Deep mutational scan, measured.
Amino acid sequence: GTVKVQGITIKVPNPDKAYKIAKKLAKKYNLTVTRKGNTIKVE
């Protein structure tokens, strides 16, 4: 899958794990995490 952070896309082998990490970071930096299948977008 991929993770998008402010325009940066990161390929990740485990979208579930990445999503959990993204959620933690999002809370810390007051961002929104959206997930569509293997693509995770943080904005």
Score class of each variant (00 low, 15 high):
43 E>Q: 12
35 R>F: 11
21 I>K: 02
37 G>C: 09
1 G>K: 04
21 I>F: 12
37 G>V: 01
14 N>E: 06
14 N>Y: 10
22 A>T: 04
35 R>D: 04
10 I>K: 02
29 Y>G: 02
15 P>F: 14
33 V>R: 00
28 K>W: 15
30 N>S: 07
2 T>I: 13
18 A>L: 12
40 I>S: 05
6 Q>R: 10
37 G>Y: 03
26 A>D: 00
33 V>H: 00
40 I>A: 00
13 P>R: 12
13 P>I: 13
13 P>T: 12
37 G>D: 04
10 I>G: 01
15 P>R: 08
30 N>V: 05
43 E>F: 13
38 N>A: 05
28 K>H: 09
5 V>M: 09
32 T>N: 10
39 T>P: 01
29 Y>A: 02
26 A>R: 06
7 G>R: 04
35 R>I: 11
5 V>W: 15
37 G>L: 01
13 P>M: 13
19 Y>F: 06
3 V>D: 05
19 Y>E: 05
31 L>N: 03
1 G>N: 06
3 V>W: 09
2 T>R: 05
10 I>A: 02
31 L>M: 09
1 G>W: 14
17 K>M: 10
41 K>R: 09
40 I>G: 02
40 I>R: 00
36 K>V: 14
26 A>I: 08
1 G>S: 07
32 T>Q: 08
32 T>Y: 08
11 K>S: 12
34 T>K: 11
19 Y>H: 04
8 I>C: 15
36 K>G: 03
27 K>T: 04
3 V>P: 04
31 L>I: 07
35 R>C: 14
26 A>G: 06
34 T>N: 04
19 Y>S: 03
37 G>S: 03
34 T>C: 14
1 G>F: 08
7 G>D: 06
36 K>T: 13
31 L>V: 10
34 T>H: 05
28 K>S: 07
12 V>G: 02
28 K>G: 03
16 D>C: 15
16 D>G: 09
32 T>K: 12
5 V>F: 15
43 E>L: 09
29 Y>P: 01
17 K>Q: 13
33 V>G: 00
24 K>V: 10
5 V>N: 05
13 P>D: 13
26 A>S: 10
26 A>K: 04
12 V>Y: 05
33 V>Y: 00
25 L>G: 00
10 I>D: 01
41 K>T: 15
12 V>I: 10
36 K>H: 12
4 K>G: 04
13 P>W: 14
40 I>T: 02
42 V>G: 02
28 K>E: 07
30 N>W: 09
30 N>P: 07
12 V>Q: 01
22 A>N: 00
25 L>C: 14
18 A>P: 00
27 K>W: 05
10 I>M: 06
20 K>L: 10
7 G>C: 15
5 V>K: 05
41 K>C: 15
18 A>E: 00
16 D>L: 09
2 T>G: 04
14 N>M: 12
31 L>H: 01
11 K>P: 09
16 D>S: 08
39 T>F: 11
32 T>L: 11
10 I>F: 13
20 K>Q: 12
40 I>H: 08
2 T>C: 15
4 K>E: 14
41 K>P: 01
23 K>Y: 07
6 Q>M: 14
17 K>W: 14
2 T>M: 13
6 Q>P: 07
28 K>Y: 15
35 R>M: 11
4 K>Y: 14
21 I>N: 02
29 Y>W: 09
22 A>Y: 09
8 I>H: 05
4 K>F: 14
34 T>D: 02
2 T>L: 13
3 V>M: 07
21 I>W: 14
12 V>K: 01
13 P>C: 15
8 I>R: 02
24 K>T: 07
31 L>R: 01
7 G>Y: 11
35 R>S: 08
4 K>N: 10
27 K>I: 09
21 I>C: 11
41 K>Q: 11
40 I>N: 06
33 V>P: 00
43 E>K: 08
14 N>I: 06
42 V>S: 02
5 V>A: 04
11 K>M: 12
9 T>I: 13
12 V>F: 09
10 I>R: 01
20 K>A: 12
27 K>M: 09
2 T>H: 10
20 K>I: 12
20 K>Y: 12
35 R>K: 08
2 T>Q: 10
30 N>T: 02
41 K>L: 15
24 K>P: 00
36 K>D: 13
26 A>F: 13
10 I>T: 01
31 L>Y: 05
3 V>A: 02
3 V>T: 03
37 G>R: 03
4 K>D: 10
33 V>W: 01
22 A>L: 15
31 L>D: 01
18 A>T: 02
1 G>M: 12
41 K>E: 14
26 A>E: 05
8 I>F: 11
9 T>E: 07
9 T>S: 09
11 K>N: 07
23 K>F: 09
2 T>A: 03
17 K>D: 08
3 V>K: 05
29 Y>R: 01
21 I>D: 01
30 N>Y: 11
37 G>M: 01
36 K>W: 10
5 V>H: 14
24 K>G: 06
23 K>D: 02
13 P>E: 11
14 N>Q: 02
24 K>I: 14
6 Q>A: 14
36 K>F: 10
24 K>Q: 12
29 Y>D: 00
22 A>W: 15
25 L>V: 03
38 N>R: 03
11 K>V: 13
29 Y>M: 06
4 K>P: 07
2 T>K: 09
30 N>A: 10
10 I>L: 06
6 Q>L: 15
38 N>F: 04
34 T>F: 03
10 I>H: 02
5 V>I: 13
32 T>I: 13
10 I>Q: 01
17 K>N: 08
32 T>C: 14
19 Y>L: 06
7 G>M: 06
17 K>R: 09
23 K>Q: 11
1 G>E: 07
13 P>N: 12
41 K>W: 15
10 I>E: 01
33 V>K: 01
32 T>H: 08
34 T>E: 04
40 I>K: 07
39 T>K: 05
35 R>T: 05
9 T>W: 11
7 G>W: 12
39 T>G: 03
34 T>L: 04
21 I>M: 07
35 R>Q: 06
16 D>Y: 10
40 I>F: 09
17 K>C: 15
14 N>L: 11
6 Q>K: 13
29 Y>K: 03
11 K>F: 15
43 E>I: 12
6 Q>G: 15
30 N>I: 06
17 K>P: 01
32 T>D: 03
27 K>Y: 12
5 V>C: 15
1 G>L: 12
38 N>W: 06
22 A>G: 06
28 K>F: 12
22 A>I: 15
6 Q>F: 15
25 L>W: 12
13 P>V: 09
42 V>P: 00
25 L>H: 02
3 V>Q: 05
26 A>C: 08
37 G>A: 05
32 T>S: 08
23 K>W: 06
42 V>R: 00
36 K>R: 12
34 T>I: 09
15 P>Y: 09
19 Y>M: 06
22 A>R: 01
23 K>L: 15
31 L>A: 06
18 A>R: 01
20 K>N: 11
37 G>P: 03
16 D>I: 07
31 L>F: 09
16 D>N: 10
23 K>S: 06
26 A>P: 00
25 L>F: 08
6 Q>W: 15
13 P>F: 09
5 V>R: 03
32 T>P: 01
11 K>A: 11
21 I>A: 05
25 L>R: 00
39 T>E: 12
36 K>Y: 11
15 P>D: 03
18 A>Q: 00
31 L>G: 01
27 K>V: 07
35 R>P: 02
38 N>K: 05
23 K>H: 07
7 G>I: 13
18 A>C: 14
38 N>D: 08
10 I>C: 14
40 I>C: 15
11 K>Y: 14
15 P>E: 03
27 K>A: 11
11 K>G: 06
13 P>H: 11
16 D>A: 07
26 A>W: 09
6 Q>N: 14
14 N>K: 03
35 R>Y: 10
15 P>N: 05
5 V>G: 05
4 K>W: 14
5 V>D: 02
41 K>V: 15
7 G>T: 08
11 K>T: 11
5 V>L: 12
6 Q>V: 13
43 E>M: 10
19 Y>N: 01
40 I>E: 02
20 K>M: 11
29 Y>F: 10
1 G>R: 02
19 Y>Q: 01
4 K>L: 14
6 Q>Y: 15
36 K>M: 10
25 L>Q: 00
17 K>Y: 14
31 L>W: 08
30 N>E: 03
20 K>S: 10
10 I>Y: 06
2 T>E: 11
26 A>V: 08
5 V>P: 04
9 T>N: 06
3 V>C: 15
39 T>M: 10
39 T>Y: 11
12 V>E: 01
4 K>Q: 12
12 V>M: 06
37 G>E: 03
21 I>S: 02
22 A>D: 00
14 N>A: 04
9 T>G: 03
22 A>P: 00
20 K>F: 06
33 V>E: 00
2 T>D: 05
14 N>C: 15
42 V>E: 04
19 Y>D: 01
3 V>N: 07
19 Y>A: 02
24 K>E: 10
21 I>H: 02
32 T>E: 06
9 T>Q: 07
42 V>D: 00
37 G>N: 05
28 K>N: 07
30 N>H: 09
8 I>G: 03
14 N>T: 03
3 V>F: 08
39 T>C: 15
38 N>G: 02
11 K>D: 07
32 T>R: 11
37 G>F: 04
42 V>T: 03
